[in-house]
Amino acid sequence: MRPLPAYLALAGRLVVGGSLVVSGFTKLMLPPEELAMAMEAYRLIPLSMAVPFARALPWVELFVGAFLALGFMMRFSVPGALALFGMFLAALSSALIRGLNIADCGCFGRSHLTPSQAILMDSVFLVLLAIVLFDKQHFFSFDRWLQPSKDRKAPHRHV
């Protein structure tokens, strides 16, 4: 019988990783200039950087999300997802603090989530990621599958 946190970590991986995959994929289906326009509203990066950033970010989300959901290279995918959500939270909070009028957070391409709703969602994701980070079981993951069988029984480390 596996302990509850192992199942929670699996659920967390699937939810957060799945969300990143959906978010990255949806953004990739849009022209990058649209995402760049949503980014402009935050007034955090210069316009000349917004379009290249809008081109790169969805790919990062897609890869980190897929690796996280599959439990693959979690040594990189978990900190990667933490960094992404940390960055999103910082941008959203700074927009709220500065009183910027942002109707659409730009999450998931065009989701029509307000910054406050997005902050709530990202915070829940961060909590789930914390559970994944401290989980030693890596239940149903590529990392566990790829481990030599003798190591699987012992509580293990991130690989």
């Binding site: 289906m29 849009l30 649209e34 760049a36 326009m37 402009e40 316009l47 379009v51």
Partner: peptide
């Protein structure tokens, strides 16, 4: 053409969204 916001401009095929862009 996946235009989502106004104004969107196409310089031939190069896209520009909004006044600041």
């Amino acid at each position: 053409l996946q235009v989502k916001a106004t104004p969107t401009f196409f310089f031939n095929k190069r896209r520009v969204v909004g006044d600041s862009q």
